[in-house]
Write a protein that binds this DNA or RNA. Structure first.
Lengths: 196, 196
DNA sequence: GACGAAATAGCACGATCGTTCGTATACTGC
DNA sequence: GCAGTATACGAACGATCGTGCTATTTCGTC
């Protein structure tokens, strides 16, 4: 990896942290360059525009989600174990120390959901991928005999999404110490209802 | 109502609309004053600081939620009917034309959840109020014999919150036409599980 | 109709925003 | 050792940010 790519990685890394706290609009080149000990123009040269920086940060976040949440789940056996692992990783992801302001995908989704553009597209695609992953995981669980054959797969994915989102909200805004317990309880009930 | 209060109301009204689209940080005095045909300083004089403007907008949003979602539900008979009404109003609220960017409380929650201050406090209080309302509504449903006596009231409130949040997310980011259907299905299942 | 108060406008401020440009330094292959 | 490219810097741009002052207009009251 050349020096340029290395610096760019450092920038994106820092930007992820800042954006999770202050949002993507609150993330400014000035703050970011100061934090990194770079000049504003030197930093800017790596991206050419703030839009492009936002996009790269977004893409990095999506990749990191895949790496942290999806991939380890894929290492688990198909069916319920994989779904459980995915869910647990997801809860952990919301408290990942590299994103002190909470899941950056949630932040970005709220910020960009009304602004058509590449940022929105990346986010929507990532969300669809996530739903598709859950849907497929549920199908595999059906095939493995863990879940009922007549389970509504899309609904199952939607329900999981709801729980994760609710956990995140409750955790970040209310700092509710029971958030994890509540989310896991809801998840267990969801699993129980899905089982054969 | 004096002219000052009237203008202030117009400002807050416009600000609600803008903030739901662009967030509270994206909401600027310049844009707002232009939109309203006011001078920036004239607008500013009504609040004294941007913080104060944000606070009043936030408070207005909370009041409007109470008026639009909570109050009509209170007019319904205790128990399941009231809970159903609350939920339906809530889904409707997320598409309220006076907030074209989606529920402003969600926007604000994501934006302020890491920034200690009065804004965060107002939001957290509003969330707690909402949870408290749902908890109480569930207790009344138990007393009315609609719900099981051993129902975990807090969990029920958490579950409702999750569904509403998931609906909002799915609706705004993915424009998923099935979002309403999914949310209502999840809600019906929640009700079924809560019934005696 | 005059007067005091309330409401709004005008203008300027320092700071910061994203962006541009010319330049200096470091690394690469010849 | 030199040419050429990659990388970073510094200074400056116009725009806009929130905010402070001072006029000016509008309004309710006598």
């Amino acid at each position: 990896m050349g020096k340029g790519a290395e610096t760019r990685d450092r920038i994106v890394d820092s930007a992820l942290r800042l954006a999770s706290r202050d949002g993507f609009e609150g993330l400014t080149l000035g703050t970011l360059s100061t934090e990194l000990g770079l000049s504003k123009s030197g930093l800017f040269a790596h991206f050419g525009s703030k839009d492009e920086l936002q996009l790269q940060v977004l893409q990095a976040a999506v990749n990191r989600f895949t790496e942290t949440v999806v991939r380890p789940a894929l290492a688990m056996p198909r069916g319920e174990p994989r779904i459980r692992a995915f869910f647990e990783n997801w809860l952990g992801w919301a408290n990942d120390p590299c994103m002190p302001g909470g899941c950056i995908l949630v932040t970005a989704a709220v910020e960009f959901d009304d602004r058509p553009g590449p940022q929105r597209d990346v986010l929507a695609a990532a969300h669809k991928d996530r739903v598709a992953f859950m849907t497929k995981a549920a199908r595999l669980a059906v095939e493995a005999g863990h879940f009922r054959p007549d389970l509504d797969l899309g609904q199952f994915a939607f329900d999981m999404d709801c729980i994760a989102l609710g956990y995140h909200h409750s955790q970040r805004l209310l700092r509710d110490p029971k958030a994890g317990e509540r989310a896991r309880f809801a998840f267990e009930r969801l699993l129980a209802a899905a089982r054969a």
